Amino acid sequence: MASGTLAKPQMRGLLARRLRIHIVGAFIVSLGVATLYKLGVAEPRKKAYADFYRNYGSMKDFEEMRKSAK
Rank of each mutant, 00 (worst) to 15 (best):
A34Y: 07
A42S: 05
M59V: 02
A26R: 05
K38A: 15
V24F: 15
R45S: 02
R45A: 12
M59I: 11
M11C: 04
F62Q: 03
S58Q: 12
A34H: 07
M59F: 06
K38P: 00
R20S: 14
I21E: 14
V41M: 01
I28A: 14
Y37I: 11
Y37W: 13
A26T: 06
L36S: 01
S30H: 01
G40W: 00
L39Q: 10
R17Y: 09
I23K: 13
T35A: 12
R17D: 05
T35E: 01
V24W: 14
V41S: 13
E64H: 14
D51V: 01
L19N: 03
G40L: 02
I23T: 12
V33S: 04
K60L: 06
L15G: 08
D51Q: 03
L36C: 00
G25M: 09
H22M: 12
H22N: 14
E63G: 03
P44W: 05
G25E: 07
Q10P: 01
I28V: 15
K38F: 11
Y56F: 11
A42F: 06
R20W: 06
A26I: 12
V33A: 13
E63Q: 09
Y53K: 12
G32E: 07
L19S: 03
T35G: 07
Y37A: 09
K47F: 04
F62I: 13
E43M: 06
